[in-house]
């Protein structure tokens, strides 16, 4: 089976007053059709930069190298016209903060219809509108709200409008960047259920980005944990969450306690220190200053991603099967 998305040795470098700052430092992964990958990590680890790089949404002045193969084509070398088409029909992205991503003075139905008409994925305006109402229905928004303006909808409804909009031109891949972070618990559950249903019904592939490992475990088959611009652990999501082999993944998994687990009761768990500044990464393994298990050798060289268990890989010299 060929991969739907194949990212090869992707690097993203920002140019700032402090010089060149590497945000993504050589990331490779593949996503099968219908597969779902969860990307976890803290702010500044490069996960959102990578999501934007995949669709070439980063502002000018940022250098991206490597390959992003969507099917057979490399997104990074595509002509602008082709790129515009691919962004809606091949892969679409859902951002967090639905209030800012929607046009406040346009009815939601028109915002969803616009890309459909532009990319001619439906024969005429009428069919496009029918499809928009259909999509809204699929994300649980009744047809009588289609004519509403964004401010008339609740936060959860607006987030679901964004999902409907991303699906307007029937993409094969949906990238969701913290799509539920600003939402209440019950609304988050509603949105996750919608995504899960869509994935099952249309064989939609998904990349799901958040810092909450437990959400990812719930939505994704595979998990990749990023730290300082690289993937430091990956594997099947249950396995990574329940038997993490990288000390950073262990800390992330413990940060959100399992309710009922006596060990975490009255005992919140965290890491010392802060995520590193991408402009001044520590030598050796970039995690070693915060790592509870670090030994002298960790300062020598950055460990590569190598097998750490069945179907699992970790970038840690102490995590070997």
């Amino acid at each position: 089976m060929t991969a739907l998305l194949s990212v090869r040795d992707l690097t993203v470098t920002y140019r700032t007053s402090q010089g060149e700052v590497p945000a993504v430092r050589g990331v490779s992964f593949e996503l099968e059709p219908g597969g779902s990958l969860g990307l976890a990590g803290e702010s500044g680890c490069g996960k959102s930069t990578m999501a934007n790089a995949i669709l070439r949404l980063l502002p000018a002045g940022i250098t991206t190298t490597g390959e992003v193969l969507l099917g057979e084509e490399d997104v990074l070398t595509m002509k602008p016209g082709r790129l515009r088409a691919v962004r809606w029909t091949g892969a679409a992205i859902v951002f967090q903060g639905a209030l800012h991503a929607l046009n406040p003075v346009q009815r939601v139905i028109d915002q969803i219809t616009e890309p459909i008409i532009l990319h001619k994925t439906e024969p005429d305006k009428k069919a496009a509108e029918k499809r928009a109402v259909d999509l809204l229905g699929q994300v649980g928004i009744p047809a009588n709200r289609a004519e509403d303006y964004p401010h008339q909808l609740s936060g959860g409804q607006r987030q679901r409008v964004l999902i409907a909009m991303a699906l307007a031109c029937d993409p094969d891949l949906l990238i969701a960047d913290e799509p539920t972070t600003a939402l209440d618990l019950m609304v988050q559950a509603q949105v996750l259920a919608v995504l899960e249903k869509l994935r099952a019904e249309r064989q939609l592939s998904m990349i799901f980005i958040t810092h909450d490992l437990s959400v990812l475990t719930y939505v994704c088959d595979r998990l990749a944990v990023m730290y300082a611009g690289r993937i430091v652990e990956r594997g099947p999501s249950d396995q990574v969450f329940e038997r993490p082999t990288h000390p950073y993944t262990r800390a992330l998994a413990a940060a959100f306690p399992t309710i009922g687990d006596r060990e975490s009761r009255m005992n919140p768990s965290g890491l010392k220190g802060d995520p590193p500044d991408p402009a001044a990464l520590p030598a050796g393994c970039p995690f070693h200053p915060r790592c509870p298990d670090a030994i002298d050798r960790c300062r020598d060289a950055e460990p590569p991603l190598l097998p750490s268990g069945p179907a699992q890989e970790a970038a840690c010299i102490l995590a070997r099967p």
Binding site: E42, A255, L271, D274
Partner: peptide
């Protein structure tokens, strides 16, 4: 706050 910092702050409050 970031996930890894969360525990430290909660521990401080407690």
């Amino acid at each position: 706050l970031d996930a890894s910092i969360r525990g430290e702050i909660l521990g401080l409050l407690r």
